[in-house]
Every structure is written in C-alpha cells, then in structure tokens.
Nucleic acid binder design. Structure first.
Lengths: 352, 352
DNA sequence: TGTTAGCACTCATCAAGTTGGAGTGCTAAT
DNA sequence: ATTAGCACTCCAACTTGATGAGTGCTAACA
C-alpha cells in the first residue's frame, strides 16, 4: 500500500523519523536535531541529522511549527509510524474482564464500565456503542396490568428486552390475550425487525380481527424498540481527559470536542462511518487528524475497533485523543478488549 | 430570618447594593463607583457612592478582588439579593411541555430531554434525577424464553418496568410457572421494595418448595431494580456550558467540575443533601458558593427544585452555574418546569 | 562523497521595565 | 450630607532586551 512514497526513505531516514515521533509522543514538545543525535544509537552529529530532517520535511513526514523550532510529525508522519514503525506490543494481557464482570449485570452497565475502564487505562476519551443487533424477535408476551393497560414485553434473540405499556380502550379478557400472544409469537418469531414489513403487519391485523388495534400498538412498540436501539445507545467516558492535553485544551476546539461528546450525535455519525470503512484484518482502524470523519476532531486521532458477537452483530469502541496518543498502548487495549467483549456481553445478557 | 443584619441597611444602601449586583450579573466585571453613579436613578456622585460602598464592604456584602478594583458581591451579597432584591419575574409561561412530550415516549427520555432543554434555555449545566419512587410492586410475571431461561418482569406502581432474564438449571413446566406467578403476585403485590424483608422472602421460599431457587433469583432481580434506581438515575446536560464563564473555566476547577458531572457520583450526594434540606415553600433551594454541599462547586451557585409526582414521589432538578447566574431566569424556569413535570411524566409513563 | 564543525540568523519565551486607565480613600470645600 | 479634587494603588497591556533552542548554509575534513 502506497509503497512508492516509502521507497524514498532509506533506512537511516526511517530510523530518524522513528526517533522523532517516539520522542514527540513522549514529550509533546517539538524535537530538535541535537536531541535526536543523542537519542539514537546511530552516532551522527546534529548537523547530519539536520540535513536528514530537512529531507524528511520536504517529503512531508514532519513539519516545523515555526521557523527554528524543532520538528513535529505531520499527519503523514503519524500514518507512516502507525503503518510501519509501531511495534506490536504484546504486554500482560489485561485483566479487565474479571473486573468488569464482577461488578455488573446488565449489558448497559457492562458497556458503561468498559468505557470507564478504558478511559482510566488510557487517559483518553472513550466511547462504546451497544452492539447493533440484526435483532430477531425471540418471544413476545402481552399481559394485563390493569383494566386499561397491557404490558407488552418483547425479547430479542440477544436477550435484549423491551417493554411497553399499552393503553387500550376495549378491555380484553385473558383468553383473547392468550390468543393474541400465540398469534403474535407464531407470526413474528424469528423475524428480524427489518423483516417485519407492511405485509406481515396487514396479515396479522387481519387475523387479530377486532383486536387489530392492539396489534398495531405492539408494532409501534417494536418499531420504537428498533429506533431506540439505532438511536443513542452510545456510552462515553473520560471526556474530560481531553483537557489534559494542552494541544487540545487550548482554544475553543476543546469546548467543541466536549460538546460533541455530550451530544453524542456526532459520535453516532463517526460510528456509522467506521462500520462502512471496515477493511483491516484486525478490525482496528486508526484515523489521524483530517482523516477522521468528524470535523471537530481534526486535531485528534481516533482509534476504533469493532467487536463482534457471534452472528455478525457488531459494536464499536472508540478512543479519541491527541494525535500524539500512545498508539501502541491504545491498540493493545482495544485488541484485548475486543476479544473479551464477546464473552462479557454474552455472560451479561444471560443475567440481565 | 436574620433580620438584624438587614436592619442596618438604609434604603439607599440597598439600592446601591442592588445596582452593584445587577451590574455584576450582567458584565461579570468588578463594578466601580462611577458606573453606579450613572447607572442608578438616584443622582449621586461617584464619591458618595464610594462612601456607601465602603460601608457595604465593611458589612460584608461586597468585596474588592484587589485594592482599587471595583467591587463584586460576596456570597452574603448574593444571598441578600436572592432573598430580598430579586424580582419575581412572571414571564411568558414557557411552552417546554409540548415540545418535550411530542418527541418522547419513555420516561428516561423525557428526563434527558428536560435536562437538555433546560441547559439550552439557561446556558448553565443542568441535572435531573428520576423520581425516586416509594416503589410498590404492582405486577410480576414469569415467562419461559427457552429451556434454560426465564424472563421475570416486574411492574412498579408508577409503571416503571424492570425485567431480568434468569438462568435456571431445573427446567420448569408452564404449570409450575403459573403457580409461581400466582404465588409471587399474591405475596408481593402492593408491597414497596423496602417492605420486602427477610421474613417475606423466607415465607415465599417455603411456599415455593423445591423451586425456592427461582424465588430467590426473582428477589435478586427486585433488589437490583431497587439499587439501580437509587443508584445512577441522574441525567445531565450542558456541562460544557461551564466553560463559557471565564471565572469558572480558568484553572483546574473547571476540570474538576466537569468530571464531577461525568462521574455523577458527587451529584448524587448533592441530591441527597437537597432532599434532606428541603424547607422552602416553593420547593426551590439556592446554594451560593460555600453553601453548596459539594466541595468542587464552591465557586458556583447551585439552584435546585424538587418536583413531586402525586404521592410523595420526589425527584430533583438542579442547575449549576457561576455565582453570578441569572437567578431570576433560572428560578422562573425551574418553577414552570416543576409544575409541568408531573404531567409530563405521568403521560410518559402511560406510554412507556 | 558523505560527514562534520562553525557561524549567522530566526523565533519563542521570559523577566523587567513602562505606561495608561480605572478605581479607591481621604480631605477640604460647598 | 454631598461633592470635587488629588494622590495613590493596582492591573493589564505593551515594549524591550536577553537567552536559548533550533535551523540553514558553507566550508573544511576524511
């Protein structure tokens, strides 16, 4: 991929670029030729380094914030680093799993916990979406609450449960309720929410006869369950971590970032983008600077991972931080998390 | 209440104090004698004002940030303002109600919407807690999902619905399930979650015989429903508004405030405090500076209102902003909201 | 030919001065 | 009791100069 560009970098240039980026990741300060001259093992004087750096700058891997400051990596530089230079750390496998499980039961809470833990571990802002299910209806139950109200419970195949209280004008006896229950279950069982179309509904109503009103209320409930899921099931944590990085916290960009986090709508669009992009074998995507789909995040890097529960059901985890984020650590975290989430959520569901 | 102090303020001093505070609320800048001399209708020279201001300062109503800056209100000054000076605005009754209702169905979403709207209306940070119900059990239903799983649905008297999937080892036939349903409903119906004590549980288990395990699972579910309610049912919005006020956004206090908002735990303690304090006839409390129960908010003012649904079920709305917040507007908003929330939520519940 | 040392230059940052305006306190005059 | 006037204080904004880090270039070197 894009080998042409990198062909131009001889080994020494690569080493220097690597050194520059690593150093900048640590300090956040522009790094000068002198520093590199000592930092690396290849014994070169600062002057030589300067020449090389001039080349690297011309090639677009690094930039000068102002004349006679040190160099900092450009987006292209980061990209090169991520694609080629970064070591695959395989550290101690984090034991997030146990910790999360022990404290939580409901899926929603697992997700919150995960976001929180990840934020605490990385010191960046994090987000996580609930798995967006190709939800199939597993079980429907109507029951009386009182004279005028019926409780409709819908269980999805992933044990997500939705319930709605339906107000009815006609009062139904238990027998018709039972009949309706059977009707609904036989008709809808195993169907995904997308598959329940007007045809199905019409047929159902017909079969329900005079109680078609109830059927259509149940449908509304289903529709809502769907939309709600697609809507705002997105949890964030550690947004304030953003303020820890001077390059972000300055200016109004910080405010915008934080509100994006609060509002969550922009994040949603990010998630969608991510799900479309998906191509890397690892399931981890890195967006650097302008590469991110969201305007307000153009000074950040965003690392996302999609996780998958069993049957094609996907969710997204994201980490938003400064461009000089600790990519290795972040990817490491995401990788372990990604592989563990399946287990966590399945356990959680069984218990929710 | 504390009439002694205010006795000392002649009418002119009051007028001046009022002018100072109003001016400061607008500008956020220390206000000087010259400004007041023009701002007010009482025609006095700046020199006279200065004398009066010196008095006011000695009495503790205003302070100087540094020598020869203007004066700003002290906490005591704000307090006086809130207690005596503030006009009761009765503006156009805000039509929040309709707007919220139309867009939302579930109680949770109503609350989120309310927080959001309030934040947008006031430009401060807002929070709202779900009404903490003296929840009575209204209806319990166990149903099969599949071989190994049972769905337990619990409906509370306010139509809050909780559900839990219970994994069982023994497989129960429909008949026993029906029996258990009847058993649970007769035993628990009408009881508040606090009233279900060990005695009730023991009795239940005894009656359930070999299925006591299921009973205790249901109890766990109930307990969790309870704790979850008491736990984190608190919605915030507009946290980033805090950054709009320079006196807050500077320094680390902003960061702390924001994290307090993210974590929500501190907010919870605030809510508890508020529910205890409750004394004012209007149900609205104002905490100025150090008066607030939470340390990190000592540079803010917090205005809270408790709302009440029918039978002693209470929730809290809070607004957090700078000390120089627009108390009139805020109180106005809270007041209308408070009276409307009852209606909103009852409607919402019926639909959730 | 690649590497290095040296030098002039640029720019950010900091401390120390400088100024101007806003505001006060006090006193004397009204 | 009120006001005008004056000396004083302090902040904020600006200038200034020194410092240091860093660069680019050139000429010398191996």
């Amino acid at each position: 991929m894009g080998d042409k560009n990198e062909q131009l970098l001889d080994e020494r240039k690569v080493k220097i670029l690597d050194a520059i980026i690593r150093n900048y990741l640590e300090t956040g300060e522009p790094v000068g030729s002198r520093t590199i001259s000592k930092y690396t093992d290849l014994n070169l004087s600062s002057a030589t380094i300067r020449n090389e750096m001039a080349d690297l700058e011309e090639l677009g891997y690094i930039v000068q914030p102002h004349t006679s400051a040190g160099r900092i990596p450009s987006d292209k530089g980061y990209r090169f680093y991520v694609d080629h230079l970064m070591k695959e750390k395989d550290r101690e496998v984090t034991e997030m799993k146990e910790f999360v499980i022990e404290k939580t039961q409901k899926m929603e809470q697992v997700l919150k916990q995960v976001a929180k833990l990840l934020a605490a571990n990385t010191n960046y802002a994090t987000m996580i979406t609930a798995p967006s299910f190709r939800n199939k209806v597993k079980f429907i139950q109507l029951s009386h609450i009182d004279e005028r109200q019926i409780l409709a419970v819908v269980v999805m195949n992933s044990n997500i449960v939705k319930n709605h209280v339906i107000s009815v004008n006609e009062s139904l006896d238990s027998e018709t309720l039972l009949k309706l229950n059977i009707l609904l279950n036989t008709a809808l069982n195993g169907l995904s929410l997308q598959e329940i179309n007007l045809g199905t509904i019409a047929r159902l109503k017909e079969q329900a006869g005079i109680h078609s009103q109830v059927v259509s209320d149940v449908m509304d409930a289903l529709a809502q369950a769907l939309s709600e899921n697609e809507d705002l099931q997105i949890y964030t944590s550690g947004a304030t971590n953003i303020l820890k990085y001077p390059e972000l916290s300055g200016s109004e960009s910080a405010t915008n970032l934080l509100s994006a986090f609060e509002e969550k709508e922009e994040l949603m669009s990010l998630v969608n983008e991510v799900l479309n992009d998906e191509e890397s074998e690892t399931g981890i995507q890195i967006y650097i600077g302008d590469e991110t789909p969201i305007r307000t995040m153009k000074d950040c890097s965003v690392v996302t991972a999609t996780y998958e529960l069993g049957d094609g059901v996907k969710g997204t985890i994201g980490i938003i931080g400064p461009k000089r984020m600790d990519y290795e650590n972040v990817m490491d975290n995401l990788k372990t998390l990604r592989s563990q989430l399946d287990g966590m959520l399945n356990k959680a569901e069984g218990d929710s």
